[in-house]
Amino acid sequence: MDGGPDRLCALHPSWDEDIRFFGPWEREGGMWRSASDCASSIVVVEECETTMETARRLVKDGLLGEWGAVVGGVQTGGRGQLRRPWVSLPGNLHASVLLPDPPAGGAWAEALSALLPLVVGYMACVALEELGVSPELKWPNDILQSGRKVGGMLIEERDGKVILGLGLNLAGCPAEAEMREDHSAPAGRLAIPSLPGGALTLLEALVSRGKSVYAIMLDEIPPTRFIAMIERRLAWMGRTILVREGNEAPFEATVSGLSPDGGLVVLRGEEETVLYSGSIFPLGVP
């Protein structure tokens, strides 16, 4: 069929509207590229292992430019960080976006590499806020809504090219039993009050908004102020959490903010510790 990625519509009803809206579609290998007039290119693949690899290949072949996105209908091997599996339900958003090269000069030239996970988290928050959602950010960039994890992000850098992986539970979320045993927040479905379409519409909103937020941030907002801005959206501030870091014994601490290089500052007794890796789990009731 040459009309577009129509097979997707069979996956989930939310695709119908999107396919029409972002058409016409041009066939490109086994994929479809939207020829509509949107902010950056969108490539749709009906089925793939993971959009991360598909995007990586397109980038390598010069077929995906900055902010170009690959959206997958079905992922057979969706992944989160550290190759953890990501459950890809039909109708959810699974996408990979090529981020621009870091700026060569200015305050962000040095800071961006460390802060990038927070920057993309912030971008997503701002975009969602405009759609009427009040998301919280679990450090560094899990998206929480009402205390449930509704989305996650992953950044993979290779050969100087940085690809952002996005997973948002738009249509459904994995059941409790499907979750990894040591997950830190229960999974939830992202409720968006005013989304006129499905996964593609959401992606387009995220990318076009993200793009301008990103540009402005790098031009206008010094990294130190950015830290303050993102702190406002940080989940679990002041709450007691359990920190599991590397192979060490877990310890209890209180979330107290962010360090200038984006680490999570926690109070362990009287002592301030900065986390750059590891997992945090909320303890007790807020």
Partner: peptide, 15 residues
């Protein structure tokens, strides 16, 4: 790719 470093969910492939 020789190895991969993870920091704050950012994965850096070292080639």
């Amino acid at each position: 790719e020789l190895f991969n470093i993870s920091i704050m969910k950012q994965e850096k492939a070292v080639l």
